[in-house]
Every structure is written in structure tokens, then in C-alpha cells.
């Protein structure tokens, strides 16, 4: 057991984890944050994406112990109470969600993009989200959603 101190969705926490435990296991199984999804567990699909110090990383390939001292944001941490984050709102309204399994990873990756580049063009969006696989949507509406979110971003985020 290793004791890890980290901030999860703004809350400082301390949790005991196994040496060989991934951050994905800790989030889902110890912390009950099941919004982070597992599609492959091998780094291939992007559905386990979380933000580590604001950058999207794959939680299935991150050791929980390596979250020590870092800030983690999961999909549960985006909305403020009832108010959806602009990226969430845009995904909802633009029809960018179908089965929703890729959605948490997509939304977090998109948020990180807009945090650093609030005005991306379509190609930039596609590049930034290209490691997140979606089997349902054909991607059109996901890219639309990020464009829509970008429009309201400066005041919304």
C-alpha cells in the first residue's frame, strides 16, 4: 500500500493504493468515480482520459501512485452544480452524444484543448481529439460541439 495525496475534482484526498494499481482502478473502484470509462485498458481508445494538472492523460496507463501531489479532474468534476460546463452543454445540444461511452474522455480532451486554445479550427480539433475513438457518431457532431463550445468559451469557462 502506498498512501497517495492528490486533488480530485477540487477536493484534496488521501487514498491508499496498491503498487500496481492504475489511476483508472483507483478512480472507479476506490473512489466510486465511475464516469471514467474503460474501453481497452491498453492505451488504445482514450475512453479513460482524465485531466492531470489540466492535461489529458490515459488513466489506464497511469499508476495511481504517480498521481501523488497532482490535480486530477474527471468528468464528474466539470459541471458546477446544475450548470454544465460549456463543453458539456455544447455536446448535449449538438447531438455529440450517442451511447456516451467515449463521451467523458472526449469532453475532457476537448476542455483541455479549449483551455489552451480557445479558438481552434476544425482540423486542430480533430487532431487534438484523434486519440479518442468513437464508434457511434461518425465524429461530425463532436467536432461541431467543440466549435460551438469555443464560441462561448471565454466567458463560459
Amino acid at each position: 500500500m502506498i498512501i497517495v495525496q492528490m486533488t480530485v475534482n477540487g477536493n484534496p484526498i488521501e487514498v491508499g493504493v496498491g503498487d500496481e494499481e492504475t489511476l483508472l482502478e483507483t478512480l472507479r473502484q476506490r473512489l466510486g468515480l465511475t464516469g471514467t470509462k474503460q474501453g481497452c485498458d491498453l492505451g488504445d481508445c482514450g475512453s479513460c482520459t482524465v485531466l492531470l494538472d489540466g492535461k489529458p492523460v490515459l488513466s489506464c496507463l497511469t499508476l495511481a501512485a504517480d498521481a501523488q501531489g497532482h490535480e486530477i479532474v474527471t468528468i464528474e468534476g466539470l459541471a458546477q452544480g446544475e450548470d454544465l460546463h460549456p463543453v458539456q452543454r455544447a455536446f448535449h445540444e449538438a447531438g455529440a452524444v450517442q451511447c456516451g461511452f467515449c463521451t467523458p474522455g472526449m469532453v475532457l480532451t476537448a476542455k483541455a484543448l479549449l483551455d489552451t486554445n480557445p479558438n481552434p479550427d476544425r482540423e486542430t480539433i480533430k487532431g487534438a481529439l484523434s486519440g479518442n475513438l468513437c464508434r457511434c457518431t461518425g465524429y461530425v457532431k463532436i467536432v461541431n460541439a467543440v466549435e460551438i463550445a469555443a464560441k462561448v468559451y471565454p466567458e463560459g469557462a
Binding site: L52, L61, T62, G131
Partner: peptide
């Protein structure tokens, strides 16, 4: 390399 999110790691 791989994908942007993997490049962050």
C-alpha cells in the same frame, strides 16, 4: 507518436 493524449504521458 501515438495520439496527443499519449504524447502528454
Amino acid at each position: 507518436v501515438a495520439s496527443p493524449n499519449i504524447q502528454n504521458m
